[in-house]
Simulated assay, not measured.
Amino acid sequence: MKTVLVTGGSGFIGRGLVRALLARGDRVTVLTRDVQRAQAALPGARVAMWDPERPGPWFEEVDGVDGIIHLAGEPIAKRWTEPARRQIVNSRVETTRLMGEAIGKARRKPGVFVCASAVGYYGPQPGDKVLDERAAPGEGFLADVVVRWEEAARAVEEQHGTRSVQLRIGVTIGEGGGALDKMIAPFKLFLGGPIGDGTQVISWIHVDDVVGLTLLALDNEAVRGPLNVTSPNAATGEEVARALGVVLHRPSWLRVPEAVVKLGLGDAAEIITTGQRVYPRRAEELGYTFRRADLVPALQSIFGR
């Protein structure tokens, strides 16, 4: 049994992770701004208030836990106005630095700090370029944010000796949230299809495997540094649209012009108009067995078909 501190525990990934930790007998404390909401969503977990923007009494929650899983972060699928950019940076880079400060002040420091990161680290890349954890960072706003985010996470190990893992999480699908909520809406109206030419590669993963790989990072002392959290079978936008059409029994041929997406999201359109083929090399080396490695069965597990 471990004592685990989780941020972002009431989010889409966090809910599944907290349930899995509790199911195996761990003691879980969730740091949240909305205690009442978190208590309702996460029965069995202890809930404590925090302010991710400044030090406070929540620093005491870090002292003595076995591990920290830091998932908190502002959504990125919105127009990148200057205020939005600041929120995206601060909610990732600055909160991670603040968590490092809390670890530094703990009398008994956690053994591991598992910090969310993202495949945005690699930036937009050609679909035939396979990227494992050794690949260099890409270019652009998101890549720059993720590089700084991971630097703040690595500093926890460099400065305080706490093993640090950075989870480079792909496009996450699952029931009750994640990327699917936005993906399936056009299909339900018989308006589904790929975005642009559909050749962009989507490095996706089922939420069950995000949880599985997060637990691997928490438990296995051989895991440190970056860990690609993606299915080994990335898919193009065309393939994703076709798979959704098959599972939902809807047409999947109506293309969404890139110009329409850019009109709505501005620079943030790169999230869905570009992509990268990210391979989970480290997970493979560690012997991790994916529960949902193939796209159509993964979607069928969500929609019950």
Rank of each mutant, 00 (worst) to 15 (best):
P57Q: 13
P57L: 14
F59H: 10
F59G: 07
E60W: 11
E61T: 13
G64D: 08
V65I: 11
D66A: 07
L71K: 03
L71D: 01
E74D: 14
E74V: 12
P75Y: 05
P75H: 05
I76W: 07
I76G: 08
I76A: 12
I76C: 08
A77H: 15
A77F: 15
K78E: 14
K78D: 13
R79N: 06
W80T: 02
T81D: 11
E82A: 15
E82M: 13
A84H: 11
R86T: 15
Q87T: 12
I88T: 03
V89Q: 12
V89S: 13
N90C: 10
S91P: 02
S91W: 00
V93R: 03
T95I: 05
R97A: 10
R97E: 09
L98A: 07
E101H: 13
E101K: 14
A102S: 08
I103W: 03
K105V: 08
A106M: 07
A106Q: 06
R107L: 11
R107E: 15
K109M: 02
P110M: 04
G111M: 05
V112N: 07
V112L: 08
F113T: 06
V114M: 03
A116Y: 03
A116H: 03
S117T: 06
A118P: 00
G120I: 08
G120R: 02
Y121V: 10
Y122A: 03
P124Y: 01
P126L: 10
P126R: 05
P126W: 08
P126M: 07
V130R: 11
D132L: 07
R134N: 14
P137C: 06
P137A: 12
E139D: 13
G140E: 07
F141R: 05
A143R: 04
D144S: 15
V147S: 06
V147A: 05
R148E: 13
R148D: 12
W149C: 05
E150W: 03
E150P: 00
A153P: 00
A153E: 00
R154Q: 12
A155I: 12
A155P: 00
A155Q: 13
V156Q: 00
V156H: 01
E157Y: 09
E157Q: 14
E158F: 01
H160S: 09
H160V: 06
H160P: 07
T162Q: 04
T162K: 05
S164L: 00
V165P: 01
Q166S: 14
